[in-house]
């Protein structure tokens, strides 16, 4: 594996955006950063800035207002980038799916690569999804390089 590919795999910087659900998944994403789960051992850093991020973690269901913010954040992230929808609300809308102001799933707003169902998604599942995202990131990176050259 080339050094570039290895580096892409070893350093996924996260951007977490809660689009508006119940916070349960958001808290579990935060729990991943803390000593018991510690995702920094995989090189993940919670950046809080879309311009620095590689992986966008979306939790919660998307409504008109937060969808705008979500699209904005997504478009600010430089290539290659991966989007993970964490929790059933971000995947399909969950229990709120037929509410009057919600889009059923984050994929109505931005392209989503990985879905994790469950309410709320467990930290283990979130870590696993980011590790899948890392492979995808490497793949997307290769196609991005091919496009650039």
């Amino acid at each position: 594996m080339s050094l570039v590919a290895l580096s892409r795999k070893k350093s996924p910087w996260l951007l977490h955006f809660e689009t508006g659900g119940c916070n349960g998944c958001a808290i579990e994403v935060w729990a991943c950063l803390t000593p018991v789960y510690d995702v920094e051992r995989f090189g993940m850093v919670n950046t809080g800035n879309p311009k620095h991020a590689d992986v966008l973690i979306v939790t919660g269901c998307v409504n008109a207002r937060s969808g705008r913010v979500l699209r904005n954040l997504y478009s600010q992230m430089p290539e290659p980038k991966v989007v993970i929808a964490v929790g059933v609300c971000a995947c399909t809308g969950g229990i709120f799916h037929d509410s009057y102001n919600l889009a059923p799933g984050a994929d109505r707003a931005i392209p989503v690569d990985i879905y994790i169902p469950n309410c709320a998604a467990r930290p283990e599942a979130i870590i696993d999804s980011v590790l899948h995202a890392v492979d995808l990131l490497e793949e997307k990176g290769r196609s991005y390089d091919a496009r650039r050259s």
Binding site: L3, S7, R8, K10, E40, R41, F42, D54, P78, P80
Partner: peptide, 22 residues
């Protein structure tokens, strides 16, 4: 916590270097 590997900073640098310039 366990923390990142010792050479993490180099991974970060190379990855950043390969990202889309914006």
């Amino acid at each position: 916590r366990q923390g990142p590997p010792l050479v993490q900073a180099f991974y970060d640098l190379i990855k950043l270097w390969q990202k889309q310039p914006r």
